[in-house]
C-alpha cells in the first residue's frame, strides 16, 4: 500500500465536522477545491488498490456525486456553483478512469511513478508478429465474407486480451513497491492491450458504432 499522506483539512473550516472526503463536508456541504496531492482514489474515498469491486466503486461515486453535483447548489453563490461544476467534472473523470480496468491499471502505474506510453512504446516481443498475422487473416476473412472465421478471430483476440488483463491485475497492486524494471515491464503489458483493441475494432460488424465508440 502507498504510504503518501494527503493534506486533508482534517476538519471542515466552516462547521468543524470531521471530513471524510477531501472535497466536500458531509455535514454542511461546504466544497473544497481538490488538494494538489489528492489522487482519484482519494477523490472517491476508496482504498488505493486495483482490486476494486465495481459495485462499491459505483456506490462511492454516486454518494459523492450526490453531494457535489451543481443541481444541489442551485441557490448558492456563483463561486460555489462553479466549484461544484469543476469538482463534478473531476469526480466524473476519476470514476471513468477507475471503472475501466485498463485505465485503472495505467493510472496506478502513473501515480506509482512508472513510465508513460510515450516514454515506453515497447510491446511484448512476440506480439507484433502475432498481430501482423492476425490482421492478414482478418482481412482475408472480411474479403471472403467468412463470418465463422471472423467470429473465431473475435474469440481468440478476446481471450488473449483477457489473459493479458489477468497478468496486469496480478501485478498492479505490487506497483507501489516495484522496481523501475518491473514498472517498465508493466507498461509493456499495458501497451499490448491497445493492439488487441484495434484488432477487435477492425472486426467490428457495424462501422458506424465503432466510430462512435472512441
Amino acid at each position: 500500500m502507498d504510504e503518501r499522506a494527503i493534506s486533508l483539512p482534517v476538519k471542515c473550516l466552516s462547521c468543524n465536522e470531521q471530513l471524510t472526503t477531501p472535497i466536500v463536508c458531509d455535514g454542511c456541504h461546504t466544497l473544497y477545491p481538490v488538494p494538489q496531492s489528492a489522487d482519484f482514489f482519494d477523490l472517491l474515498s476508496i482504498p488505493r488498490t486495483f482490486a476494486l469491486d465495481s459495485e462499491s466503486l459505483s456506490r462511492a461515486y454516486r454518494s459523492i456525486a450526490r453531494q457535489i453535483h451543481p443541481d444541489t447548489f442551485g441557490g448558492d453563490s456563483i463561486e460555489a456553483r462553479n466549484l461544484s461544476t469543476r469538482l463534478s467534472a473531476q469526480i466524473n473523470e476519476a470514476f471513468a478512469t477507475l471503472r475501466d480496468p485498463v485505465k485503472r491499471a495505467a493510472y496506478i502505474l502513473e501515480i506509482a511513478g512508472g513510465p508513460s506510453a510515450i516514454e515506453v512504446r515497447e510491446v511484448p516481443g512476440t506480439l507484433l508478429g502475432e498481430v501482423m498475422m492476425l490482421r492478414e487473416e482478418i482481412e482475408q476473412a472480411q474479403k471472403s465474407g467468412d463470418e465463422a472465421a471472423m467470429e473465431k478471430h473475435r474469440e481468440t483476440i478476446t481471450t488473449r486480451r483477457e489473459d493479458t488483463l489477468r497478468l496486469i491485475a496480478d501485478r498492479a497492486d505490487a506497483l507501489w513497491e516495484a522496481s523501475d524494471e518491473d514498472k517498465k515491464a508493466f507498461r509493456v503489458l499495458l501497451n499490448s492491450i491497445k493492439y488487441f483493441d484495434n484488432l477487435l475494432a477492425e472486426l467490428q460488424a457495424d462501422p458506424l458504432a465503432a466510430g462512435k465508440d472512441h
Binding site: 451543481p70 469543476r86 463534478s88 467534472a89 466524473n92 470514476f95 471513468a96 462512435k212
Partner: peptide
C-alpha cells in the same frame, strides 16, 4: 471529449 462521457466534464 468523447461522446457519452458523463457531464460535467472537462
Amino acid at each position: 471529449i468523447a461522446a457519452n462521457v458523463k457531464i460535467p466534464c472537462q
